[in-house]
């Protein structure tokens, strides 16, 4: 089951095509990475999902239903550019935003108190937002995003501007919410975070969906059969010569007691290991090097 499905979504602005035939689906309960360089069309896509704008063509389904006006209350969205009413008190503001999402007054108050207690910010209730630091405002913004218990949470660069401690706090909350069954779309161009957090990714470039799938599968798909071999003692001289005559092995990098070898064919890894053992090389480690998402990202975007 997927919480969100996009089918051939297209969105034009003026003469510029911001979203070009994008399809993907977000499995229920997953953490999904929406990646892409700046200006790729991530925000346009998110605005369609959050019902801020409408697709020119194509379909969007939330939890099996065509996107409709009831859905905003089931989605939590934290835009990249954070914003709160500066002159409003924290409590009033959160109550307002929660009620706009369709919560009753009592319900909103109860949930807000729980969240604020959790973040130990309950005593900010009567403070004006402008009196708080930027990090504090981020916490308020996060509470505003999740207070109505959305089915789907869309976080656009959630860690930008957070110090490591608060970033970890939010990260733990994201895991916690995900454990409780909330599906999360995580839009970013910070690849190390995606690798750490997301199970699935979609890569958008120039409005097009260039890559889809499980992070592990994508890595397999883009691996270049590079193996790292740690060894003791001396490498046989023949290896280099062998290498020259036999194009199946290419030493990519020679480090201290370690070589990176690229093989033409994945299946040949055993043959390589066998060859080295025959030559009496003392093997300490042998493992495949998978490309980082960052590498895949750069390769896809440039290519």
């Amino acid at each position: 089951m997927s919480i969100l499905t996009l089918e051939n979504v297209v969105k034009n602005y003026d003469k510029h095509r911001a979203v070009d035939d994008v399809s993907f689906s977000v499995p229920k309960g997953s953490i999904y990475g929406l990646l892409g360089p700046n200006g790729a069309g991530k925000t346009s896509l998110i605005r369609i999902i959050t019902t801020i704008t409408r697709a020119d063509s194509g379909q969007v389904y939330l939890d099996g239903e065509k996107l409709n006006t009831d859905h905003p209350g089931q989605i939590g969205y934290m835009p990249e550019e954070r914003g709160l009413y500066k002159k409003m008190k924290v409590g009033e503001q959160l109550m307002y935003l929660a009620q706009l999402k369709g919560m009753s007054k009592a319900e909103a108050k109860k949930n807000l108190r729980e969240w604020m207690e959790k973040f130990q910010i309950l005593d900010w209730w009567d403070k004006k937002v402008e009196e708080l630091s930027k990090g504090m405002q981020q916490k308020i913004q996060f509470v505003a995003t999740v207070v109505h218990r959305p089915k789907l949470l869309i976080l656009d660069e959630p860690f930008s501007g957070l110090d490591p401690i608060n970033a970890n706090l939010i990260k733990d909350e994201i895991y916690q919410l995900n454990q409780e069954g909330i599906s999360i779309i995580f839009s970013t161009h910070r690849m190390e975070q995606v690798e750490e957090i997301c199970e699935y990714i979609t890569l958008i470039n120039k409005g097009k969906n260039v890559l889809n799938g499980k992070v592990a599968d994508v890595k397999q798909q883009f691996k270049q059969h590079v193996f790292s071999i740690g060894y003791g003692g001396e490498l046989p001289a023949e290896l280099e010569q062998e290498d020259l005559q036999n194009s199946r092995f290419t030493i990519q990098e020679h480090r201290e007691q370690e070589i990176l070898v690229k093989i033409d064919d994945d299946a040949a890894s055993n043959a390589l290991l066998q060859f080295l053992i025959q030559k009496g090389v003392h093997i300490r480690s042998f493992h495949e090097i998978l490309p980082t998402l960052n590498e895949i990202f750069i390769r896809q975007v440039r290519g």
Binding site: T51, P72, M78, P79, E81, G83, L84, Y85, L97, A144
Partner: peptide, 15 residues
């Protein structure tokens, strides 16, 4: 003010 504050994007994702 709402536009500059960027709160507008949060609000219009609800209304």
């Amino acid at each position: 003010e709402e536009k500059m504050n960027r709160i507008v994007e949060v609000v219009i994702s609800s209304v």
